[in-house]
Each structure stands twice: as C-alpha cells, then as structure tokens.
C-alpha cells in the first residue's frame, strides 16, 4: 500500500509543469527526460551537451533539495526484483527511443501542445503499463 497524496502530487506535478514552461521560454526546448538524456549521451556540440548536463545535474539535486526542505530523503520503494529492474530498464530504453519520448516529453509537453502523436503515445503506454502490471501482479502473482 502507498498513501493517497493528492495535494502533494498536484504540487509536485505543478513544479514539473513549471520546469517545462521555463525550459521552453528560455531555450525553446521540450522538457522530455528521454530527449534530454539521448542528446546528453550523443551531443550535437559542446554547447548542446552543456545545457543537457546542467539540467541532469539539477534533476539529480532534487532529492537533496527535498532533504533540506523536509528533513528526510524522498521514499524510493522498489517492489520488484533486480532482474526485473534491469530487464524493465532495458525495455524502457528501447521503447522510448522508438516511441520518441516518455511520460514527460509526450505525456506532459506533447499533450500540452495537443500533439496527436503525443496523445496517441500516451494512451498507448498507459494502457500497456496497466496491462503489464495486471499480468505481473494478478495473473503471474509476482
């Protein structure tokens, strides 16, 4: 069980939205974790690598800022085995590369632009995730 946290989640989501708006306003870029990471791994230029590295460093400072603000680290409860983490991570990497984005790029930024590709992608991965969780938890019982 995890606690239902509507206000905390709404606030956190608003910050995700704020970051998305600020990145578009300042640099004209989509705040998509997949796109930023992909460009970081093989940058077009040193300048292109720089802002991506800075964003990733900022992201990774999030837990520390949370610790300073609340006095405790954010909870990371991983209810799956190590092989599932590794296999799942590998599959996610393949999927987001072919799909051209993930929950942040398609799910937030693309949907906010009313992109039909992003809306299609979001509906597809949400359904695929729900089916996968159902199969793993209720049919296989892992």
């Amino acid at each position: 069980m995890t606690d239902f946290t509507p206000f905390q989640s709404l606030f956190g989501g608003s910050l995700i939205g704020l970051a998305s708006v600020l990145l578009m306003l300042s640099m004209g870029r989509i705040m998509g974790a997949t796109g930023i990471l992909a460009g970081f791994l093989s940058p077009a230029s040193l300048q292109d690598w720089g802002w991506r590295a800075a964003i990733l460093a900022g992201m990774a400072t999030g837990p520390l800022a949370f610790l300073i603000a609340t006095g405790s680290m954010p909870a990371i409860d991983v209810p799956v085995s190590t092989p599932m983490l590794l296999v799942g991570g590998f599959i996610v990497g393949i999927g987001v590369t072919f799909g051209g984005g993930c929950t942040s790029g398609h799910g937030v930024c693309g949907n906010a632009r009313l992109s039909t590709r992003s809306i299609t992608a979001t509906i597809t991965f949400m359904i695929a995730t729900a089916i996968t969780v159902y199969i793993i938890r209720h049919l296989i019982g892992a």
Binding site: A33, G88, I91, I94, C102, A121, T122, A130, I131
Partner: peptide
C-alpha cells in the same frame, strides 16, 4: 510511435521507473 510506446509501457510496468 505506437510500437515504441507500447514497449515503453511494458518496461515501465515491469520496473516501475520511467526515465523522468
């Protein structure tokens, strides 16, 4: 687009983490 997104969803459902 659809195949990639479906594969992403399967991986997300297995691991519980998305890139963001």
């Amino acid at each position: 687009l659809i195949g990639g997104s479906a594969v992403f969803g399967i991986g997300w459902g297995i691991a519980g983490f998305c890139p963001g």
